[in-house]
């Protein structure tokens, strides 16, 4: 297999010309988001350049502390993203989400790197990119799950109140909301798995093939990461909501939303 053609900076910058197409279409369709497009492209560029520099440094100077710091940073950022989209929940619920994301992410990542790949957990080449995919998807799942849960509960206040007045336990009232949110959070990942390989070659596999990996190896990695992601999303949302919903009521069986 050929190894990848390195992009030189001049040729690479030609890709930015494609943005002009989007800008032209936006202008024609009166979509007022040109600022966002430019900001997003700019931020992506800066963030990835920084990530590239940091990763280059870490790969050249591998040390467990770097991996740990990188992981902690990822977890902190993903927790922040989930919580910033769910501001109204109580403090203990936020704690439940934080621990669930951190625990599920690290547990699945550890299983993948150490058991499946058979590498050290502190090997930056494996742990850091896989952590990004696993924790990133867990974050999206948790955001979707929490959004569904909090919106459902808000929209069905009357139901909760009626059942509470009838002498139904908060657990029995709230569990259906938990289950529904978990299902909603899992669907995108599972649908993604359904179409995989037919509709598109997924990102990680594409990357590996481009850089010269045998397609059979790339496929195995892709399958492994998809199952890992699905499990991580499921575990994160399940733990967040299972520990979280219990913070919504007290020993007097009063529900505080």
């Amino acid at each position: 297999m050929n190894s990848i053609i390195k992009l030189d900076i001049i040729h690479f910058s030609l890709i930015y010309l494609l943005l002009l197409i989007i800008l032209a279409i936006m202008k024609k369709s009166k979509i007022n988001q040109t600022k966002l497009l430019l900001l997003a492209s700019f931020r992506m560029t800066i963030q990835l350049i920084l990530a590239g520099l940091i990763l280059t440094y870490i790969f050249d100077n591998p040390h467990p502390a770097f991996v740990v710091i990188y992981l902690l940073g990822m977890i902190a950022f993903s927790v922040h993203r989930v919580l910033s989209k769910n501001k109204d929940i109580n403090k203990n619920f936020k704690l439940a989400i934080t621990f669930s994301l951190a625990f599920s992410g690290v547990f699945i990542l550890g299983y993948f790197v150490m058991v499946v790949v058979g590498e050290s957990f502190f090997s930056p080449q494996y742990t850091i990119p896989l952590a990004g995919m696993i924790i990133g998807n867990s974050m999206t799942g948790a955001t979707l799950g929490m959004k569904t849960f909090t919106e459902d509960i808000k929209n069905q206040r009357n139901k909760i109140e009626a059942l509470l007045n009838l002498g139904v336990t908060p657990k029995k009232i709230l569990l259906p909301f938990v289950n529904n949110a978990l299902e909603t959070a899992l669907l995108p990942t599972m649908n993604n798995m359904l179409g995989m390989g037919i509709i598109s070659l997924p990102g990680m596999m594409t990357g590996q093939i481009l850089s010269g990996t045998e397609p059979t190896t790339a496929i195995m990695y892709q399958i492994a990461i998809m199952i890992a992601i699905c499990t991580a999303v499921c575990l994160t949302v399940f733990c967040s909501l299972t520990f979280g919903y219990k913070t919504l009521y007290n020993s007097r069986n009063q529900i505080k939303l």
Binding site: L164, N165, L166, G167, T169, R252, N253
Partner: peptide
């Protein structure tokens, strides 16, 4: 409180 609410029903 669950037993209480079963006996004392609020509509």
């Amino acid at each position: 409180t669950i037993e209480l609410r079963k006996e004392v029903s609020l509509i």
